[in-house]
Amino acid sequence: MFDLLIVAAMLGCAFQAVRGTRLLIAALWLAGASALTAIMMFRLGAPEVAVIELSVGAGLVTVLFVFAINIAGEEPPVTLRSLVPAPLAWIVALCAVGLGAAMALPNLRVESSLLQADKFATVLWEHRSLDVLLQVVLIIGGVLAVLGLLAEGRANARKESQ
């Protein structure tokens, strides 16, 4: 029952995050959804990732959102009509999820009783060390991209001085 509540709350938060008209509020709803996801992760037996999700997903990302919204400036909260007709959007999203569910859910594998003997650290640093190493590439690429996109350019500086 607890799980049901968590899931319902999580989906509710997510829905609010997507639906809300104010960006800051949406970011906060997203943080809420992220926190509840972290609880769900903990329930699924993944405490380490839950902690990371809590700090990164609910914390860092929210901070970044707030930063971005601050710099970009909140749009005036005019409710604009969706560019894709909303009913169509609902139908297609439901179809995609529904078909996926219809193919996957009835065949949901029975939970394996085997438990992995290895510790998280072992798996992370030994078995899947390549993924971890590649995160470095991802981070370098991301940092360079952000630097490149946000650097105050010469042209920009010129424009602002005018």
């Binding site: 990732v49 999700e53 992995q116």
Partner: peptide, 23 residues
């Protein structure tokens, strides 16, 4: 990961995804 009995592997995958997604 849980269904296939490899929770820890699932965790590592999720960790990488979190990093990638944040970036």
């Amino acid at each position: 990961g849980r269904l296939s009995g490899q929770v820890q592997t699932g965790q590592t995958l999720a960790l990488t995804v979190i990093v990638a997604d944040t970036i």
